[in-house]
Amino acid sequence: MPVRLRIPAIGVDTPVLRLGLAPDGTVQVPPITAHDRAGWYEHSPVPGRTGPSVILGHVTVGSYGDGVFRHLAALRRGDRITATLKDGTSAGFAVTAVRTVAKADFPTDEVYGDVDRPELRLITCGGPRTGDGYADNVIVFAAVSATGR
């Protein structure tokens, strides 16, 4: 499993938690804490394997302030992302697209659907605030660019 995620363009260098499914069938999200971490969805491929590996992080963590993915929407096409695995190997990705979508129109197929190469999805919240949350999701799509130790 991935243990660390680095996104130099937005200053992210975070340990990675393991996330599963919540009882209601939605994906679990990392806990709301100071210095929150990103989390890898355990039913998605390990970064570097064929398929869309999904990693989530908060944009803000309530009274603790900014979340680990606070500046995810600032990523641009070509920006580099590196996921380091537990065995010491790493997989490098390049951003292919950054999208902000309404939660009501979350593109499930595009995020979780099968692909024929190793890809990465980084997900956080964004857009207008609604109560104690946000109306939109920011999704970063990235494709593998290099793997190695």
């Binding site: 209601d24 939605t26 039913h43 491929p45 993915f69 099968d114």
Partner: peptide
């Protein structure tokens, strides 16, 4: 081993993730 287990998403979650909590007091 490279294709079958662990490749692709095996369980697709429902809905959109809530990955942001605003500061209610602010």
């Amino acid at each position: 081993p490279s294709e079958a287990p662990g490749d692709q998403v095996s369980v697709v979650p429902s809905g959109a993730p809530n990955t942001g909590v605003t500061a209610p007091s602010s």
